[in-house]
């Protein structure tokens, strides 16, 4: 039979399996070689990056398998001269095979979900001694509010300053429309919703300056709603904070005097 010579027997299956294994290995290697991520600057980042690598290792072979089967079929089973009026074998199905390709992906997916759930618990776990920072989003700027170490009005900053290795809990709000607070280097994001306070936990673990972006369309200035997140050492942060406190005028006596003097000047002139 022509059918036998075209595709019967086990040989094409073996060929196919060999191609699929080699191609999958290449595909996974390629997937892992691509430089996907920006720098890792939080403990959350490494958990998420590992999850992504696991996803690549599990899913690339599936894509490669599908592509390889298609390529193989086109090469091996393509109509040849003289076969124009022939039909393939009337195979209507195979119950065992169908059960396999229902059950195996289902088990894989449940396993992945379990893993993802554990990873989620890990990255969202509450930490001891979290610093609380208010994130206020409005069209088209961020502002960050820190509790004032001297008491009084909170310290407000346009840039975000964080301390290396110290966990932070952000309380995020929006004044007008929905925004989304995203620091790609931390891998974490949460929408800022008018009327709601949403929360996000991050433990920065790498010094440096990273972009803060708005990820939810918020109007004509959406693309430009960017800011910097600075991860500092405790020392640098304290120095910065002291400066802010000074500038806000709520702190030490000398600062108050200086400002008072400046303020008095116009009065005396008048």
């Amino acid at each position: 039979m022509a059918q036998e010579s075209r595709g019967g027997g086990r040989r094409p299956l073996m060929q196919m399996a060999a191609i699929a294994v080699v191609a999958s290995a290449l595909g996974v290697a390629l997937g892992l070689l691509i430089e996907w991520f920006p720098s890792q600057a939080s403990t959350q980042a490494s958990t998420i990056d590992t999850l992504y690598n696991v996803l690549i290792i599990t899913s690339v072979p599936i894509f490669v398998l599908v592509t390889a089967v298609i390529g193989f079929c086109v090469w091996r089973f393509r109509v040849r001269p003289g076969e124009e009026d022939e039909d393939g074998p009337p195979i209507h199905g195979n119950t065992r095979l169908e059960i396999v390709w229902t059950a195996v992906p289902a088990i894989m997916l449940v396993a992945l979900c379990t893993y993802a759930f554990l990873a989620l618990q890990d990255i969202e776990e509450a930490q001891a001694d979290e610093q609380r920072i208010q994130v206020i989003a409005q069209q088209y700027a961020w502002s960050f509010e820190y509790p004032n170490p001297m008491g009084g009005d909170p310290i407000r900053s346009e840039e975000l300053y964080l301390v290396e290795d110290e966990p932070v809990l952000f309380d995020i709000t929006a004044l007008d429309v929905i925004h989304s607070f995203w620091v790609p280097a931390f891998r974490m994001k949460r929408d800022a919703v008018p009327g709601l306070t949403t929360q996000l936990r991050v433990t920065p673990n790498r010094l440096g300056t990273y972009p803060v972006v708005c990820a939810e369309l918020c109007g004509l200035g959406h693309a430009f709603m960017r800011q910097n997140a600075n991860v500092l050492t405790r020392q640098d942060f304290d120095a910065w904070m002291a400066e802010q406190v000074k500038a806000a005028g709520g702190g030490g006596a000398p600062a108050g005097e200086e400002e008072g003097g400046e303020a008095a000047a116009p009065e005396s002139a008048g």
Partner: peptide, 11 residues
């Protein structure tokens, strides 16, 4: 499917 995985999709 990758986008179903919560920690990744947060990013």
């Amino acid at each position: 499917v990758a986008l179903a995985m919560l920690p990744f999709v947060i990013h």
